[in-house]
């Protein structure tokens, strides 16, 4: 993996460990983040690896976030969501996510996920293969 790519992150290994470790999709996502022109920011207090992007969409700050989190051994959820615009609210607005195992994910898919985030989850940029519902609770 490349050097630390998320603003506010520790070492790359510590970063990968936050998602449970050993997921090639996480490595590929972080490499995609590193090579993107935008700045991505880690939330160190959130479960898994959870990051936002510092850009604006249609004149407003981009609220799109990605969380990489493992609901069970050998499974990774790449979850697309927004947090509430109100600082005291704990509401989250899901746009679905992708469940992957320890297999490699095609670079085009990784790029599509990141572009979807940078575009503020615009419906026309919605990547294929996103699941809308999950049979488990997602931690904050």
């Amino acid at each position: 993996m490349s050097a630390v790519v998320l603003k506010g992150a520790a070492t790359p290994d510590a970063l990968a460990a936050r998602s449970g470790g050993g997921f090639p999709a996480v490595d590929a996502l972080l490499e995609g983040v590193a090579s993107a022109p935008e700045t991505f920011v880690l939330d160190p207090g959130a479960a898994g690896i959870d990051w936002s992007v510092e850009n604006r969409v249609r004149g407003l700050p981009n609220r799109a976030r990605i969380k990489c989190w493992s609901p069970k051994e050998g499974t990774l959820l790449v979850w697309f969501y927004k947090r509430s615009a109100l600082p005291w609210s704990v509401d989250r607005f899901s746009y679905g996510g992708v469940l992957v195992g320890r297999e490699r994910v095609p670079p085009a898919a990784i790029d599509a996920w990141l572009r979807y985030q940078v575009g503020g989850f615009h419906p026309e940029q919605r990547p294929p293969g996103i699941r809308r519902s999950f049979p488990f609770d997602l931690p904050a």
Binding site: Y81, R92, S94, Y95, G96, R132, S133, F136, D137, L138
Partner: peptide, 21 residues
């Protein structure tokens, strides 16, 4: 379609996120 949910609804997005499963 990815899913046959109603177009205005967000139920499937909320359960497990803002609600208990």
């Amino acid at each position: 379609r990815e899913a046959l949910n109603c177009a205005f609804c967000t139920t499937g997005y909320n359960v497990g996120v803002n609600e208990r499963v």
